[in-house]
Design a protein around this nucleic acid. Sequence first.
DNA 1: TTCAAAATGGATATTATTTATTATTTAACA
DNA 2: TGTTAAATAATAAATAATATCCATTTTGAA
Lengths: 150, 150
Amino acid sequence: MQTIEEILRAKKIKVTPQRMAVYSILKKTDSHPNVEMIYQKLKPDYPAMSLATIYKTVDVLKKVGLIQELSVGEGGLRYDAKIRPHSHVYCEICGKVDDVEQYPLNELQDRFLLEKVKNETGYDVSIVQLYFFGKCPQCSINKETKARGA
Amino acid sequence: MQTIEEILRAKKIKVTPQRMAVYSILKKTDSHPNVEMIYQKLKPDYPAMSLATIYKTVDVLKKVGLIQELSVGEGGLRYDAKIRPHSHVYCEICGKVDDVEQYPLNELQDRFLLEKVKNETGYDVSIVQLYFFGKCPQCSINKETKARGA
DNA sequence: TTCAAAATGGATATTATTTATTATTTAACA
DNA sequence: TGTTAAATAATAAATAATATCCATTTTGAA
Ligand SMILES: [Mn+2]
Ligand SMILES: [Mn+2]
Ligand SMILES: [Zn+2]
Ligand SMILES: [Zn+2]
């Protein structure tokens, strides 16, 4: 099993503290941060890190396949170091993004699914994203509380 | 079966030529246009239509449930008057968005699926979007042609 | 250790998208 | 038909996301 350093070096991409730091943040969190959120998380440990570097870094990490990009209808994009196929659920109230582990991308046998889509549409498909949109538990509680006048 | 006019009037939303025109464009096309594309399509018949009106109109139509909104990772959003659950495929080269009719949202029995997601995540889910990303037939051909040096 | 190419920081620029403003027009309804 | 609230056009302004620039630093390899 290759380390991140090895994966980057194999592609002639330099290993830098900034790249390691961004990847490390993404690996640790399950919050699917956008560029600005990554920037803020890195601030304490890397106060000199530039926002431009983060933009470039997520591009690099995405191209290398170490992270995936999510688009939930906000302005910017979200990033995720968990690259094994899984779905996401987005809270339309607070903007939280959570994983949906069990269902159903893994039950859809991606290989077969991509073949079917290719047959129907002619597209060569490489990525599948399944999104659920709704309201998270916290936001549901807040609504209830408000309605009760508490 | 209600007409669009009836649906709007039932919600106390005024029926205007602009709203009818935007809806009509979306109903006719299968190109999943964004706001700017809708604006351009309306230009010939409604040269005085304002871009701001289109922004407001898609909001209204979405809230009423007459259209759905797609997010494929571009700057803006795409719109679709086909609201029956179906998936989409996005060409990462030219930006085309096509429907994927047969597979697999209709096979996933949405009611059951939403219940499963609710159980796992606690989210109250109302919308599901399945996106495929890849390369459309035209863009595949272009690449081949180029590679052959033609 | 030296060196060239690549990457970074810090800033600014650019660009695209969306919202706000306001005078004017219009839809709905009595 | 007259009234009123809502909607529109036209434009300006705000927002936000990303790209670019360039001097400096760093990486990876000789
Ligand atoms: Mn995830
Ligand atoms: Mn569609
Ligand atoms: Zn929430
Ligand atoms: Zn294409």
